[in-house]
Design a protein around this nucleic acid. Structure first.
Lengths: 204, 204
DNA sequence: TTCTGCCTCTTTCCATCGTCAAGATTGAGG
DNA sequence: CCTCAATCTTGACGATGGAAAGAGGCAGAA
């Protein structure tokens, strides 16, 4: 039985294809509308094909979350690299990168910071999440190098909570329901500057 | 012709029982483990019984979210009522109430502020969520009554984001992985005081 | 080269899910 | 008492996640 070249018996990149289609599906249907069979359908394979690459649907979700954390870290460092100025503006830039990733991948972002992801508890996921936290801690550390360890930790809590909370509430529609994208960005930047100002003031 | 709650028949309080068992199930299994049939099972009725009281599983989830927002508002006002001092300490107290509710109902809290809940878009849910936002805006307003409208909005963003972000990250395990409950409360209070200080300073 | 073993994918099957349709049960009003 | 409508049960359908078994295809051994 002849098979077209487009759909050979061996896909070759099924794992990547499943992750890709899964990601699109997640953004499209949300976590409750996410199904393994639809992922397989979009990748052009049978519904049982994913089983070899992902032990379960949770395994696939964990993989997506890991990807998300890696890209989140990349977005944060990229924005910092683009920024001019000192450690304080770097802290703001890192927040901009954080929000930009979240805004571009809202459903994935929520999955990454959801109880469902936490329930997965794979080492790779924990490591990827920790890398993001370390980036953040380093930025706070650089902004207030002379502060005590306790102050640094509290300011890290504070900065992280502000940024994460703002973008979370925004993506959930709790903030700025009918505001324009431009206005929302201004509100976000305003929040970031208030956050950085407080960090520097308390930590100096 | 009469309402179901006014004319109970076999179970008598099925709607309430389903909401109650559903809430327990949600906290136990998370949003992906939440099933209508298990709710019915725990309420002691057949799998199709819920259909009369809730048009769909999303209807039940929306009801739970509405309950959650109402209780969140109650927790916030209760903590404010217990607090001594002026508007600034009331702002802190409201944050304490917010965090206390979230800590006591982590899965429900995540549902309330999830994209899934947002997708439901029932009027009752929107109203319940708005009531919480109004409580928060009023507390900020009282803390900085002489500030401009724009400053008030920015400080409301800031205060809400800090509180929501901190408890969200905490419940997801991104903050204070192995710290004691006492230490975590101290970190939360420290964050709240830094938040209130910034609000008052910027808004005065 | 041919053969053999293993990795990959398909097919088939099962228990469970949400929802619908139809039948049974019960309390209330005529 | 008797009908009737609201409530609940039973049964069914399509869809899902996962397991089991078989087929296809590649790569290394002979």
């Amino acid at each position: 039985m002849a098979r077209s070249k487009a759909q050979p018996y061996h896909h070759g990149q099924l794992r990547e294809a499943l992750a890709s289609s899964g990601r699109a599906l997640l953004e499209e249907k949300g976590i409750r509308g996410f199904t393994l069979r639809e992922c397989a359908r979009r990748a052009g394979v049978s519904h049982a094909a994913p089983a070899y690459h992902f032990a379960s649907i949770d395994d696939l979700l964990a993989e997506l979350a890991v990807q998300g954390f890696n890209e989140l870290a990349a977005a944060m460092t990229a924005e910092v690299a683009r920024a001019e100025g000192g450690a304080t503006s770097h802290l703001v830039a890192q927040g901009v990168g954080y929000m930009a990733f979240a805004a571009g991948n809202p459903a994935l972002f929520q999955l990454m910071f959801s109880r469902e992801a936490n329930r997965l508890e794979t080492p790779a996921l924990a490591a990827a999440a920790e890398a993001v936290r370390n980036l953040h801690a380093a930025a706070v550390e650089a902004a207030i190098p002379h502060a005590s360890g306790e102050i640094k930790q509290r300011m890290a809590d504070f900065a992280g909570a502000s940024v994460h909370g703002f973008i979370s509430l925004l993506l959930d529609g709790q903030i700025g329901g009918k505001d324009s994208s431009r206005a929302l960005k201004a509100r976000g930047l305003s929040l970031l500057s208030a956050m950085a100002e407080t960090v520097v003031r308390v930590g100096s």
